[in-house]
Computed example of a mutant assay.
Amino acid sequence: MRMSTQKAGSFEIIPEKCIFSYPTLKSLSATRPDVPIYVGDTSRPVFWMLEKSQVQLTNINVVPFGIWQNVSKTHLRFMILKDEVHPEMDTCIIVEYKGHMILNTVDCTRPNYGRLPDNVDLMMSDFAGGASGFPMTFSGGKYTESWKANFIKNARKKLMNYKPQLVKSLQPKIYCPFVSYFVEAHPSDRYIKETNTKNNADELNALIKKSAPGITTWTPKPGAVLDLALALMSPSRYDSITDPPSGTNIYKDSWDFDLYVDELNKAITAEIFKHKSWIQFYYIWAGPYKSPHSS
């Protein structure tokens, strides 16, 4: 999770998947290169390839984990926390405004080592699973189609069991599953898209409502608006949520593939791909993937 002020009087919370989009960064650097951006002090720097990307952002602030950061001349403060499973790169955030608190775990597997505030006004998290690419891109040996299908099914099921338990234990007033709306869009990724089944946000919310009826759930859609102040006053208020027009696309359906494919094609000539032993060494060094939810 990254935070950024984009204009006077406003403070935007930008999920890392969004701000890492090259077109987004390029557009931002062209219009507001001095926009304040706050990132956690991860061992793997967030913007370590910034200069080579020709994106100029001049006000990146690396802040320590677990320390409240006050936003000047406002009643707003935030705290960035690290993930237990991937502390070198994954972070989550708590935002507080005039005593109202939002917990956004983004896609952390075990945010802040399981130490999280309860009874927050709004909790936000991932829901779908499948972002790692494992085991869809593996083949040979045990990685048969049936093995992969069974692994994916069990992994998604474990996530759908874990999330309701976590939400129930923390008892937020409102819960919103919002991270996971991604698509394997390129035609060459068709196999991965068809194999990599994902959880459904509405189904997750239904499970949460069943196990914790007192928690209000909301499934966000493009163009939808949740008025948190109204929802907190009365969860049943019909005007606290504005839905998008009927027929609104949930997922993006048009892409500028060349922007990314051209860069990938350039990378193919990199030295590491000229030596088969180097590639094998990399995978030995990286080690086998182990699902954080496996027993």
Rank of each mutant, 00 (worst) to 15 (best):
F11Y: 02
E16Y: 02
C18I: 13
I19E: 12
Y22L: 11
Y22M: 09
S29M: 13
T31G: 05
D34A: 13
G40M: 05
T42G: 05
F47Q: 10
S53K: 08
W68R: 04
Q69D: 09
S72M: 07
L81R: 03
L81Y: 00
K82I: 09
K82D: 08
M89W: 03
T91C: 08
E96C: 12
E96I: 12
G99Q: 08
M101G: 02
V106F: 00
R110N: 10
R115M: 08
P117A: 06
L122T: 08
F127M: 01
G129C: 09
I152C: 15
N154R: 15
K163C: 01
K163S: 04
P164N: 14
P164Y: 13
K168W: 06
V179W: 00
S180G: 15
S180Y: 00
F182W: 05
E184R: 04
P187L: 11
K193A: 06
E194W: 07
N196C: 15
K198Q: 14
I208P: 00
P213I: 14
W218E: 03
K221L: 06
A224F: 06
D227G: 06
A229W: 11
A231E: 09
D239G: 05
D243H: 04
S246N: 10
D253M: 07
D253E: 09
W255I: 04
W255D: 00
F257Y: 10
F257Q: 05
V261N: 07
L264G: 11
L264K: 12
K274Q: 12
K276T: 14
F281A: 14
I284K: 14
